[in-house]
């Protein structure tokens, strides 16, 4: 019974990661890609926490806990930097997507978001 609970958390973590993974590849808008990376990170944290609860002994393993704790703050800061980069890209080129996607064109600054409902 206990083992089933861990399995659910582990698989759910993998599932959350894949939701982000799919969005990262499917969505061209940088804002959506940054959000996708955050979703992927949440999946990884979930797996870590589930694994730390499953280790031998009564108390959960503190090492993955410490990693997730710092990881959350680091991911927030990485997100802030990514958003600043995306904003910089938009203000310099007008694009909200990286090259290689659908041609952004000069009006992509306002039209990029509507093209991906």
């Amino acid at each position: 019974m206990v083992e089933t609970g861990f399995t659910v958390y582990l698989l759910a973590g993998a599932g959350v990661f894949i939701i982000g993974f799919h969005a990262l590849l499917a969505q061209a808008h940088l804002l959506r890609r940054i959000m996708a990376l955050n979703v992927m990170g949440s999946g990884v944290f979930m797996v870590f926490i589930a694994l730390s609860a499953r280790t031998a002994g009564e108390a959960p393993d503190p090492v993955p806990h410490a990693m997730v704790l710092t990881g959350i703050v680091v991911s927030v800061c990485a997100t802030g930097l990514a958003l600043a980069l995306a904003d910089r890209l938009q203000s310099v080129t007008g694009a909200t997507e990286l090259e290689g996607g659908p041609a952004p064109g000069p009006n992509a600054g306002s039209g990029g978001e509507e093209s991906h409902p």
Binding site: E3, L51, S52, R54, T55, A56, G57, A59, P60, D61, P62, V63
Partner: peptide, 10 residues
């Protein structure tokens, strides 16, 4: 299923 982990050392 029951990894040793680092709990004991910590």
């Amino acid at each position: 299923a029951q990894p040793p982990g680092l709990t004991a050392e910590a």
